[in-house]
């Protein structure tokens, strides 16, 4: 079987262009466009129903878009050649498959389905997973099943990992260790990750970029370094009834992302300390965490 030459170079691992996916009358993805470069760990953030899982489904090739394209390593997501598919790994929200298999048996069995026979799982990964190889999958707890699916996704050392709520059923220790494992896995490499999670404090530590989605669209896309440097709350000081009007009149390169109606504060992108002079005593600057930004941006 021959495969069409890649459409794009591998400067981007993922290229999503005007992706639309409609379920019945609902537009789950409404013209989404995004690309992911090698080495990026992208946090996919959005409220329930924002289109995160649909996006992941299209990227993996399980869902067919109504229009637009989702390309991975330059190939259409549904038509990846084996060697490109073999460079991907996927951790689903829940692992409910293969209940009758034993853990070790399943790891061996699935090993035959990789494009290239994978090496045995990394001992450090197995030590983290702490699974009984003789246990049946159906007898594992939710967290243990999730650790098993993480082992399966990492074992062939993929270049692009898609993680859909990978830590939701893990205990805090396992969650923290997994995040460290993920950071180690990507450190100094060109491996890319798309990770969806509602535990934003975890993502904040490992992500290099945050992709905020709502109503099937990307509503904000920012590298984490920029997020830390230039996204700020501008909060009116106690005496001031409102924010200075000149702050957002276009003269300063600030992009408003949301407003807290209770305090009158606005969340802006593009802040730099040189702008402090414009505030005088009329407003304070506060640094938001990812969760606060998420709540405002995806509102």
């Amino acid at each position: 079987m021959t495969h069409a030459a890649p459409h794009a170079t591998e400067r981007s691992v993922v290229d999503i262009t005007d992706l639309v996916k409609i379920f019945g009358t609902r537009r789950a993805l409404d013209g989404m466009s995004v690309s992911i470069a090698p080495g990026e760990i992208v946090a996919l953030l959005g409220p329930n129903g924002a289109g995160k899982s649909t996006l992941i489904g299209c990227l993996l090739g399980f869902l067919l878009p109504n229009s637009g394209s989702a390309r991975i390593f330059g190939y259409e997501a549904g038509e990846l050649p084996p060697e490109a598919r073999a460079r991907m790994g996927y951790v689903p929200q829940a692992m409910n498959a293969f209940p009758s298999f034993r853990v070790g048996q399943l790891i061996d069995y699935l090993g035959t389905f990789y494009a290239v026979p994978p090496p045995p799982p990394d001992p450090a990964l197995l030590a983290w997973a702490n699974l009984d190889m003789a246990a049946r999958v159906k007898s594992l707890s939710g967290g243990q099943k999730q650790r098993l699916s993480i082992v399966l996704a990492f074992r062939h050392q993929p270049d692009f990992l898609v993680l859909d709520e990978p830590v939701a059923s893990l205990d805090p220790q396992a969650r923290r260790d997994f995040m460290a494992l993920l950071a180690d896995y990507c450190a100094g490499s060109q491996r890319s990750v798309l990770i969806s999670s509602h535990i934003l404090s975890d993502l904040e530590k490992v992500a290099t970029r945050a992709l905020f989605v709502a109503r099937g669209r990307v509503v904000h896309d920012t590298p984490m370094a920029r997020f830390r440097e230039s996204i700020r709350w501008i909060v009116p000081t106690a005496g001031a009834s409102a924010l200075p009007a000149d702050l957002l009149d276009g003269r300063l390169p600030l992009k408003p992302l949301g407003t807290d109606t209770a305090t009158g504060a606005i969340l802006v992108d593009g802040w730099c300390d040189a702008m402090r002079g414009h505030l005088a005593d009329r407003a304070d600057i506060r640094t938001p965490d990812l969760e606060a930004a998420f709540l405002e941006i995806t509102r």
Partner: peptide
């Protein structure tokens, strides 16, 4: 998903 994502079949 586990068979498909393992990669042997590609498309």
């Amino acid at each position: 998903p586990f068979f498909f994502m393992a990669g042997r079949y590609g498309g």
